[in-house]
Write a protein that binds this DNA or RNA. Structure first.
Lengths: 260, 260
DNA sequence: AAATCCCCTCGCACACTGTTCGACTGTTGT
DNA sequence: ACAACAGTCGAACAGTGTGCGAGGGGATTT
């Protein structure tokens, strides 16, 4: 209805030559509030106050709050440590990337809640894509698989971090520590899995440890698994490029014609 | 600080014998609003109006809006089609589950934004866990791996669906269709990837198709990849149970002692 | 020197949010 | 008959994002 695909990145930034507020300052301040007090604590008035200016002044530098969110999100992508290409095996680089992304997201838990809202098209996200695709290219992946592999790794890490953050938030909300926390968690899980004795049994056997440790182990398993899979796909190579190739434009036109 | 691990599931539900409002009705109505108009459209007043009652009446049946969200989320998990165990290969069952979860989430896009907020402990989520763990158990996975495998698959699908939904939302927001949409997307991506000619080149070669088709292909690749990986892990078997096993409680105590 | 312009800030106002509180029904139990 | 309770609701509070128009101040033009 409105302008097509509007987002911060399609618009030009304000000159920002001024001595007062600047887009960077705003984004930085927003990040600080978000990191310190979570996504609910960030309001325009609060942000303005932190910057020593009125709330509505921000709207000169930023169109909506949503745009601000896009900006801070990209900032986070900029913090993900990128493996120096051509240093070790591609598997190691993927591992470094995956772990790095996980800890970066953990440091900015609010990002997860924004992932379904807008596609990440900011410069840092693009840089990240480019670098990781290089890694996969050197590893021997070709064609559309370069996209697919990266998307797959990304999906795994994003999807992993979500529930992980949810659990940590719940733990922190409870305000408990040590044995009290363990007991409360056990209580909760037992009650939730009341009707599933196997789940309870497995929980008691394996999960009765520091949850961070458990989750680290599980993440490592998932990542190992994924790397195994990628290795297999790499070996499958040529066939993949046929099997997963998008239909040619001609075919595509044909099929859409038939559909209408 | 407050009561430990409070959530809808730790509390008892209201008797709900009344002829008027009931928890189920509320949840159903909330779902309808969410599906039809998205997460921002759901307000207590709106929901009350839809049910023909005052906004504050809802608070008799539900503690906070957050709790309501937990309830609707679990409802969604209940819609995920579960593969009938012992019918085909475990790979097929995982595929069915993954595809089913993906389409279910696509039908309720607002769920994705809630994933980082609270752990999913509702009855349908538990049922889903139980059933899928059975699948993995029959496949030959053992011990903690039963948790890890499920978590890995879940992470992949969740993390995949997030960006996918973000793109679709952006497309729908644009209000364009057909060639106009294609052109607008191309424009946007070109501008975003301005500094990365390889990305642009790859996009022009592979992505200039119906985005839904591309994403389906990519999802299929990721899933194939994951299944390959799981198969490898299954074969690795015994070692995995050592490698990924949580430290015994004794060891755990030791290590924490040394850390402090 | 005066007038015009534009960048930038900001107070007010609007419609809306989640939630608390106390008052109000109608039903049930004794 | 009275009391206890389940359930509903209106008013009110503090807070939200943001449009609008009024201004200030520095640079540029006349």
């Amino acid at each position: 209805m409105k302008e097509p695909f509007t987002s911060v990145w399609t618009r030009e930034s304000r000159p920002a030559k001024s001595p007062g507020l600047s887009r960077d300052q705003i984004v930085r301040a927003a990040m600080e509030i978000l990191d310190a007090e979570g996504v609910d604590a960030l309001s325009m008035r609060r942000l303005g106050a932190k910057l020593g200016s009125g709330a509505t002044s921000l709207y000169w530098h930023i169109a909506h709050k949503d745009e601000l969110m896009e900006l801070v999100m990209d900032e986070v992508y900029g913090e993900v440590p990128l493996p120096d290409p051509a240093v070790t095996s591609w598997e190691d680089m993927v591992s470094i990337f995956a772990y790095g992304l996980r800890t970066t997201l953990s440091e900015h838990p609010w990002v997860i809640s924004l992932i379904g809202s807008r596609p990440s098209l900011g410069p840092r996200a693009m840089n990240l894509s480019s670098r990781m695709q290089q890694v996969f290219e050197r590893a021997g992946f070709t064609g559309p698989l370069l996209d697919y592999t990266l998307s797959t790794v990304l999906a795994f890490v994003l999807g992993w971090t979500g529930p992980e953050i949810a659990w940590r938030a719940a733990r922190e909300r409870s305000g408990l520590t040590g044995e009290e926390l363990d007991a409360a968690m056990k209580e909760t899980v037992h009650r939730a899995a009341r009707d599933y004795p196997e789940l309870v049994k497995r929980y008691d056997e394996h999960q009765a440890q520091d949850p961070e440790v458990i989750q680290a182990l599980a993440f490592d398993f998932g990542l190992t698994c994924l790397l195994d899979g990628l290795r297999v796909r790499l070996a499958a190579g040529k066939e993949d490029n046929q099997r997963f190739a998008p239909p040619s434009t001609a075919e595509h036109d044909e099929s859409t014609k038939n559909m209408m």
